[in-house]
Design a binder for these strands. Structure first.
Lengths: 333, 333
DNA sequence: CTGAAAGCGCTTACAG
DNA sequence: CTGAAAGCGCTTACAG
């Protein structure tokens, strides 16, 4: 390959200075009509386009946004990535992905590398993300948005699903359909999004004048087997629930397995409802009624917030945006 | 934020030249024990790390690989991305994603931008990708790997699923289970991977001494509705098939819908088999027997090929790597 | 064992 | 309306 052509080659051939070539590209100062035309034609002739790397070094901005996620293979994150791309591509940003596998050391590493690469902004996702993980970026003056982090963090924008609302909305939906005895198969730990969903469930029950019964909430693994075990347990109660909320769709599918095995008609004998709306929810039979967030829209929202930070448009107070989910009614409830 | 510290600050504080600091970082020339220690400690003290941008401009390599895909939301691509990251992260590469939505103009645009950003290599994916789409990159001397492209392209590495083998393997599996009258619901067009799968099917039939009957292959949309329509059509034949191959899992799920509606027992009355092994395949009931590729492994393989190109290790002949799929036996066949 | 200087390819104050 | 020169922050031939 021939020596790469640079701005000075264009300038020489057009009989002007690099300064002028730069200005016809940027439009940042007036260049006479004829000079502009001449420069343009030389650019075409030589096939020159400004080298982004040099421009980045000079301008101290790379037009790059880092997206750091635990596992790009989890369908939630590609959708977020898509939404982010939706809004940042137009103004010329590219996105660099980082996969942490949830490992704290990988997280620190990636943040550090993104800083040395001078990305213009970072979106850091993961349900257990903490502000301290991104401290080096913040110190370097790089705008950071946390997704899924649960605590408002000093000086950092946080965007997250409203899990409490999700639990509330799901529960109200079931109550509205005439179910009053509702069980909940939740995750093993008492914190994080699953716990918030249970809180929302409890709140909806209470505000409908129904009693919260702790026997009806069982803790299981986040898996199909967990869902199966959870439903077994609930069905052994003297007064088993008529409907069951499952902390995610996979758990709900496990519950559906035992309902089918026991010959229970869904939703007539037992209503089953999940959270997340994974692809399979629509494809199984009976199809699964569930609660859907909108990850792509979440990606768009972070993009907008960050773009605002980058052009100084977003207010200086850190934003905290909660995404309200909605129910996707299907056959199972 | 304070003025960013640079190599000359470190050098000054350590009483050496930037040259020496650079060398203690790179290890490319010997630096006396004591100097090295002093420089290191100043580096820590000042928290300095080399600016990748400046280094990239100087060294003419960005440690960046572009991954251009039609739709990052299609689960195949995140898996490829994961595999790519698996192998390129360790040697210090990052990956920049581009989403084309299959639009030819977006493809050209993205390739051009990746070139101006001086990425070190490009993986360009999409079932209809052509070599000409990436010509600007090739001209700029950037190694390119095509994924899913079907023709070997001058000077470009191509990695793709072996769809012909997939069709063959699926068909042999059904024959082995005693099915001799096998239908095929394929896509609307007569080319691309779906057509290759049909070819493989035909080849397997022939080599098993069975007759290929064109009435048994029907063309439908790539959707659940397409699968339903396809099976209807096949069942209306005077001698309907006892097993049906569906060009992808979604189509197979549509076929399963009509089997269930008609009260056919699967697989006793009718065996159904798909391709791709989407997440839902394992979750529906009956679970779907299908053909799985290994997208993550494909991502790893492109990573290896490209890394080889970058360090001059891969032979100069363009590689053509075909990925053989395997059957995932489940309940439906 | 170490340093001064050029240069990667741009943009932008400064000057006219 | 336009240009010469400095500088973004590194690495590396060249020299000693």
């Amino acid at each position: 390959m021939a020596k790469r052509v640079g701005i000075s080659d264009v300038a020489a051939r057009a009989g002007v200075s690099p300064t002028t070539v730069s200005h016809v590209v940027s439009g940042r100062r007036h260049v006479s009509e004829v000079t502009r035309a001449r420069v343009r034609s030389v650019m075409d002739e030589l096939g020159w386009e400004p080298n982004e790397l040099a421009r980045s070094l000079r301008m101290q901005r790379t037009q790059t946004i880092a997206l750091i996620v635990p596992d790009i293979t989890n369908p939630f994150y590609p959708s977020v990535a898509r939404g982010l791309l939706d809004v940042v591509s137009e103004p010329g940003y590219q996105v660099l992905i980082g996969n942490t596998d949830g490992s704290p050391s990988a997280e620190k590493d990636l943040v550090a590398r993104m800083v040395t690469r001078s990305v213009d902004a970072i979106v850091f996702a993961g349900y257990y993300s903490k502000a301290s993980d991104v401290a080096p970026a913040v110190e370097a003056g790089i705008p950071v948005a946390l997704m899924g982090g649960r605590k408002a963090s000093a000086g950092i924008d946080v965007l997250t699903s409203d899990d409490l609302a999700a639990g509330e909305i799901a529960t109200r939906y079931l109550i509205g359909r005439g179910y009053h005895r509702i069980g909940f198969i939740t995750g093993p730990s008492g914190e994080g999004p699953p716990a918030d969903r249970v809180k929302g469930y409890r709140r909806a029950l209470t505000s409908a004048g129904l009693r919260f019964n702790s026997q009806l909430v069982v803790r299981e693994e986040f898996s199909r087997a967990g869902g199966a075990a959870g439903l077994q347990e609930l069905l052994e109660l003297r007064k088993p629930p008529r409907a069951v909320l499952c902390t995610n769709d996979m758990v709900a599918i496990g519950a559906l397995d035992v309902a089918r095995a026991r010959g229970l008609r869904v939703p007539d004998d037992l209503a089953v409802m999940g959270f997340d709306d994974i692809e399979a929810a629509a494809l199984i039979s009976p199809s699964l009624t569930t609660i859907a967030g909108d990850p792509r829209e979440q990606g768009r929202a972070v993009g907008r917030v960050l773009l605002g930070r980058l052009d100084g448009t977003t207010a200086s107070l850190p934003q905290r945006i909660l995404f309200a989910p909605s129910v996707v009614p299907r056959e199972s409830a």
